[in-house]
Design a protein around this nucleic acid. Structure first.
Lengths: 194, 194
DNA sequence: TGGAGTTGCATCATTGATGTTGCATGTTCT
DNA sequence: AGAACATGCAACATCAATGATGCAACTCCA
């Protein structure tokens, strides 16, 4: 590769990045936004977007792939396999929130029919599953907890925290984990544990 | 009104109902579904849908209006103003779930720029707010609970329960309220209450 | 300076969804 | 049977988004 092509490719990649980020901003507000609006937000012509991404699907696919990679990295950086369950839970939450705050739309579309993305997601899901199992065995979750439901609730709480958007990732993670484990009640006046 | 027109109007309303229900089924699976697909599901021609609803927006608006009415009725039937907070919470949850299981898409679109729907929703939101305040004063929620966050979590749990779809509305409501108040953890190994 | 590569702009073709209309065919009640 | 209305069908018009292309202008580096 010549110096020239390297520099040019760098320019091109910068443009691609700008488009991806613009698309995230626009589509997170309006998932049905047009290519024109995305191009405008990115500060480029619509034709440029089409030169970089063969189709709308290709663009969304690239966004999903990018977000999936950052997502997987965020989970891995928390060392969910080796850290104690509570620590892992907190760190994963904070790291994932950091990604989700910036790539919410892309992550919501990351479950499309892309083989690689599906593989990565399955892998992460597996890790999440293990953390929850470990948490239950460590007595962090109730012994009779439905892990499927717990995971759904966990995802939903992360989603809500990312939407509310007030506070940094660490504060939000604290709130998410606290709510997940303790709820918002005092546990008075309730039926005895099942 | 003549007998004839009454009978005909009854037929027409039956068709309208079929279209609304078909639209809910189709759009809940694919929000971008075409009028053609909706008509097919309803067992009518596409032109018939257009005769009944001037535009796609009008159709979605009618779905939202219908769901909003059922939603408001469901909340009211739980007597949230007079029942004890925990009872109110449970009854409202179960009743709303019953509606949401059938009209999930329509309810998700019920916050559009329709003046009447907006008014009804604001009213319900107000009631929800009051129930949560009463719950906190009754010691059901923690004294330092963030009511805004609690309400978001509550909505999210209802949504998840409706999506998971296993079990009847009562079982799901039990799960939702239990999770909302106690979370899924044992409260061991956590930091002391703030 | 010259070449390689990229972008913006204008333009066009295609496509799929939406919405409309006329007409023949039922259906229901009187 | 006849009136009133609804429906299916076919055809049409419209429209917006998508995607493609040719060309001039620009940037960057050798």
């Amino acid at each position: 590769m010549t110096e020239a092509t390297r520099a040019l490719r760098s320019d091109a990649e910068r443009t691609v990045r700008q488009i991806l980020e613009a698309a995230e901003r626009v589509l997170s507000r309006n998932p049905a936004a047009t290519m024109e609006q995305i191009a405008e937000e990115a500060g480029v012509a619509r034709t440029t977007v089409h030169r970089r991404f063969a189709s709308r699907d290709a663009l969304v696919g690239a966004m999903a792939a990018w977000a999936t990679r950052r997502f997987a990295d965020a989970v891995e950086a928390a060392h969910p396999e080796t850290a104690p369950p509570l620590v892992a839970l907190y760190q994963v939450t904070a790291n994932v929130l950091r990604v989700k705050l910036d790539w919410g739309f892309a992550m919501s579309r990351a479950l499309t029919a892309d083989p690689e993305a599906a593989r990565v997601h399955a892998e992460v899901e597996e890790k999440c599953e293990r953390v929850f199992r470990a948490a239950r065995e460590a007595g962090l979750l109730r012994a009779d907890a439905d892990l499927g439901w717990a995971r759904r609730v966990y995802y939903a709480l992360i989603h809500e925290a990312a939407q509310s958007g007030d506070g940094d990732a660490d504060a939000l993670a604290t709130r998410v984990v606290d709510t997940l484990l303790r709820g918002v009640g005092t546990a008075q006046g309730l039926t005895a544990p099942r």
